[in-house]
């Protein structure tokens, strides 16, 4: 474990807590893409299949359970909670995310570390995580104004993967056999997708203005 990875995990956790806070405190999910949340729930379920078979550390197991439970509870809230579901921007959140799932599944069948059930789902979860933010970014562009908590949620979500890239660079230079190319490449793609969001987020922060994404 290195500081970059720990900081990345904490930033990821903060992003999930910010989202839960927003939904719980405001009883609203306006500006949040249900499709991105469903994709994230799928990412965690597909990646943590080894939750009961490989014990790595208490920290690892606890964080896996937290991510699975939080992502499922956000999806449940947005679908079932009577107050929250009313504020869901159904007509704006129209990204066809099933194509993302199909594409990533096909990609995992073609490019993986080993042709085993667990490894294919692991590669699938990495590819899916790289593109899972797309419905959310499209929704933000469509809804134009971004409320603070949603902006912070997306910002922390992007920052976590950027910290992981530093972690992979660190591990590449400190561990002789570290060759996780699937993680690195999908992580780079994922962080790149946040590129324009980070740019507008920084501009709005610098001008102390409200975050406006060009439609």
């Amino acid at each position: 474990m290195n500081i970059f990875r720990f900081a990345g995990d904490m930033t990821h956790l903060i992003s999930v807590l910010v989202l839960l806070l927003k939904i719980y405190a405001t009883k609203s999910c306006s500006g949040i893409s249900l499709k991105t949340q469903e994709l994230y729930a799928l990412v965690f379920l597909a990646r943590y299949l080894d939750l009961f078979t490989d014990f790595i550390s208490v920290y690892n197991t606890v964080m896996k359970i937290v991510f699975i439970m939080s992502s499922l509870s956000i999806v449940w809230c947005m679908r079932m909670h009577p107050m929250v579901r009313r504020s869901y921007d159904k007509e704006l959140d129209t990204f066809r995310h099933y194509f993302l799932i199909a594409g990533c599944l096909l990609g995992a069948l073609l490019v993986h570390e080993k042709f085993t059930f667990q490894e294919i789902f692991w590669a699938f979860s990495l590819y899916l995580e790289a593109v899972a933010i797309l419905p959310q970014l499209v929704l933000l562009q469509r809804s134009g104004n971004v409320d603070n908590l949603t902006g912070q949620y997306v910002f922390f979500l992007g920052a976590y993967r950027a910290l992981y890239i530093l972690n992979w660079i660190y591990r590449y230079f400190t561990e002789k056999h570290f060759g996780r190319w699937i993680s690195c490449i999908s992580g780079l793609v994922q962080t790149a997708l946040y590129g324009d969001f980070f740019y507008y987020y920084f501009i709005s922060w610098k001008n102390n203005a409200k975050l406006q994404l060009p439609a």
Partner: peptide, 10 residues
């Protein structure tokens, strides 16, 4: 057979 390297990252 080398033990399967469990993915230790989240």
């Amino acid at each position: 057979e080398q033990p399967r390297d469990p993915h230790d990252e989240l």
